[in-house]
């Protein structure tokens, strides 16, 4: 096991290896992700029973909860990638941070927007300064900071390392932010869904949620990998393997993927 991990680690240093292996991962992860999302959405929209208090507007949680969970996980991914970049100088980690940041920001925005939409029928207002919404908003700002920092620094290596530092500090700060924001009295419900404890909702409600969450995560990994492949191609465009690849793909019109 250990040697296997070491081998994998070593291989991860080679963008070319990752470029190929990621393609085969995407072939599995993208269909799984889309399938889970579609299944979860359809189940949640049409088959799950309505909530006895919120009625049908509760169905928004199948959008809201997965995107909120993913949004936080992506920042933690970036923080870990930041540590890997600074300690082991793995270029792949830099690409992960770069590609993951806008994806994370988009899911944070989705979580905020779906939460706001849900707030209208439930709370009677678009925006409530409650603990979770506020923490999510701060997370969105953290994403903006990382993206802005990368765009401000011209030199790519420097920008990558600077973003890594910000991602690490942000990652450490996230629990503190969440905790401090929790000091505010909250209108929000308690955690809808925990991995460790059995949820309070009936299975026909939380099973589709679980499926959607899995779908979102698989989808994210697939999309991240595809983004990283593009980044590899761009950064390595002078190398021989890229030009050979381009020559192969170019011969087949429209087959490039």
């Amino acid at each position: 096991m250990w040697t296997w991990i070491k081998q994998l680690w070593h291989k991860l240093g080679s963008p070319r290896w990752f470029y190929d292996i990621a393609a085969s991962w995407i072939r599995w992860l993208l269909p799984i992700g889309i399938l889970c999302i579609v299944a979860g959405f359809v189940w949640g929209l049409a088959f799950a029973p309505p909530d006895y208090q919120q009625g049908n507007s509760f169905r928004i949680i199948y959008v809201h909860v997965p995107s909120a969970m993913l949004a936080q996980s992506i920042f933690i991914t970036m923080g870990i990638a930041g540590v890997i970049l600074l300690v082991w100088r793995m270029k792949l980690a830099d690409m992960v941070i770069k590609i993951a940041a806008p994806i994370g920001a988009s899911f944070t925005a989705l979580a905020l927007a779906s939460g706001a939409i849900w707030g209208v029928p439930t709370w009677g207002t678009w925006w409530v300064w409650d603990a979770r919404t506020t923490a999510m908003l701060v997370l969105l700002f953290l994403y903006f900071g990382v993206i802005a920092l990368r765009q401000a620094i011209a030199r790519e290596e420097t920008a990558g390392k600077a973003c890594a530092i910000l991602a690490i500090v942000g990652m450490i700060d996230i629990p503190i932010i969440k905790y401090s924001v929790n000091w505010w009295l909250t209108l929000h419900q308690g955690a809808t869904f925990r991995l460790t404890a059995a949820p309070a909702m009936p299975p026909e409600m939380w099973i589709p949620l679980l499926i959607t969450v899995i779908g979102f995560y698989a989808f994210f990994v697939a999309v991240l990998f595809q983004g990283v492949r593009g980044e590899i191609l761009r950064r390595e465009h002078r190398t021989r393997w890229v030009s050979e690849l381009v020559a192969q793909r170019g011969a087949l019109p429209g087959a490039a993927s």
Binding site: L45, R59, I117, W118
Partner: peptide, 9 residues
């Protein structure tokens, strides 16, 4: 509300 959320998603 529901369809707007899913549309955004």
């Amino acid at each position: 509300y529901v369809w707007a959320s899913y549309g955004l998603a």
